[in-house]
Simulated scan of single mutants.
Amino acid sequence: MSQLKEVYRSLNSAGAKPRGCSTDLSLIKIMMIDALKAVDPEGLANDRLCKRIVFAESRDDLWTLRGDVMSAVSLCVGESSAFEVINVIDEVFQSGTYQEK
């Protein structure tokens, strides 16, 4: 999980900051799905949640799904580790890279 958190931080660093709404949403989706795949490589337990993430149409939809992601991750690695992963995902939400139109 620590490697996953470092990858997320590097994606959100100055060199890879998303510039637009679709890029920002895509990055958040990738981060959420990667977190689920890290704890469930087969993807069987979280298949429905992954599909909900893929088909989310807005930032608000993804914000709502982050609670489900945290619950799923915490079942496998514990609440403290899940909270750390969600904090990294939250950095993208709070980074100001998303511009509502």
Rank of each mutant, 00 (worst) to 15 (best):
K101M: 02
V54R: 12
I33R: 12
S81L: 11
W63C: 02
A45K: 14
L65C: 15
I28T: 03
E6N: 15
L49R: 08
V69Q: 03
I30K: 02
P41L: 12
D60E: 12
R48G: 05
V69C: 01
I89E: 04
Q94C: 13
D68T: 02
L36I: 02
D40A: 14
R48S: 07
F93K: 00
L62M: 03
Y8T: 12
V77K: 13
R19K: 09
L44Y: 08
P41D: 14
K101W: 00
L65G: 14
R52C: 05
L36C: 04
N87Y: 00
G67T: 08
K29S: 12
Q94W: 11
Y98M: 04
K51G: 10
Q3V: 11
P41Q: 13
Q94T: 13
C76V: 08
C76R: 10
Q94R: 12
L25A: 03
Y8C: 15
A35N: 10
V54F: 10
N46W: 01
I86A: 04
R66Y: 01
K101H: 04
P18W: 09
A35C: 10
A35W: 09
V92S: 02
N12A: 09
V85C: 01
V77M: 13
F55V: 04
S58Q: 02
S95I: 05
D24I: 07
K29Q: 13
D90F: 02
M31P: 14
E91G: 00
I30R: 01
I30T: 02
A14N: 06
C50E: 01
Q94G: 11
Q99L: 14
S10K: 13
W63Y: 05
L27M: 05
T64S: 13
P41F: 11
L49P: 10
I28N: 00
L65F: 15
K5Q: 07
E91W: 02
V69T: 00
S95P: 05
D34C: 12
K37M: 02
D68S: 01
E6V: 15
C21S: 15
N46F: 06
S26E: 04
I28K: 02
S2N: 05
D61P: 00
S2E: 06
D34Q: 10
S81Y: 08
S13I: 05
P41V: 13
C76P: 03
L36Q: 05
S81I: 09
V73P: 00
D34N: 13
I86K: 02
G78K: 12
E57H: 06
F55Q: 07
S95N: 10
E84V: 12
G78T: 08
K29L: 11
C21G: 14
V88L: 00
Y8H: 15
E57D: 12
S58R: 06
M31G: 14
L25D: 00
C21R: 14
S74D: 03
G78M: 09
E91F: 00
C50I: 06
D47L: 05
P18E: 13
E57R: 06
C50W: 00
L75D: 13
C21N: 15
S58A: 03
F55H: 09
Y8V: 14
K17Q: 06
V73K: 03
V39R: 07
D47E: 08
L62C: 06
E57W: 04
N12H: 10
R9T: 04
D61R: 03
